[in-house]
């Protein structure tokens, strides 16, 4: 005989309240930190960008990445580096010939006139093509300067150093 003192069997229910609390907190955090900025920039592997307080926004341009082992343009390998250094001949010449050649092709593409337009000798002030440089924070300035010099020889005089907002 079933004792009348035993509790009546009750269907178990899941306690959803703590789960909901957690979800609410996560959701609020994600909504607050959500940014709808569209970067046309693919961060290269093996590159740790320097940190900066700069607030200048990213704008579309040619992407050039330099890490300890290679220089790449728009994700395509251009030249290899050895522990962040180019061959000594490149430093002596003040340029990396492969990079100059590669960037010159991009420059021609960017300043190419539309059909029916005459090509100007140089882009108008403010319309100069720009390069976004992703340089590893461990890189030394000698190599960075060589890359910038090479870009300058291809026609790019303006750069944007990609950094992580601090």
């Amino acid at each position: 005989m079933r004792s009348r003192f035993l509790k009546q069997a009750k269907a178990p229910t899941l306690m959803l309240t703590p789960l909901l609390d957690m979800f609410t907190i996560i959701l609020i955090f994600l909504i607050v930190s959500f940014t709808a900025e569209d970067y046309d920039l693919t961060l290269s592997k093996d590159i740790e960008l320097p940190e900066s307080v700069s607030r200048s926004m990213f704008k579309p341009s040619v992407n050039l990445a330099v890490n300890g082992s290679e220089v790449s343009v728009e994700g395509r390998h251009v030249v290899s580096l050895t522990e962040g250094h180019a061959p000594e001949a490149a430093y002596a010449a003040g340029e990396i010939p492969e990079l100059v050649e590669h960037l010159a092709a991009y420059y021609d593409e960017l300043v190419r006139p539309l059909p029916g337009e005459e090509r100007a000798d140089a882009p108008a002030a403010g319309d100069e093509p720009v390069i976004t440089v992703q340089a590893d924070r461990g890189l030394d300035y000698r190599t960075l300067h060589l890359v910038l010099q090479s870009a300058a020889k291809a026609g790019f005089f303006k750069y944007r150093l990609a950094v992580l907002k601090r």
């Binding site: 959500f34 970067y39 010099q149 005089f157 303006k158 750069y159 950094v163 992580l164 907002k165």
Partner: peptide, 25 residues
């Protein structure tokens, strides 16, 4: 709703923010 929203926000969240420093030679 939460289960839909949270993976969506996680997938699109930017855990780092990229800025640039304009410079020239």
């Amino acid at each position: 709703l939460f289960i839909v929203l949270i993976p969506f926000l996680l997938a699109t969240a930017a855990f780092y923010q990229v800025a640039v420093i304009p410079t020239s030679t």
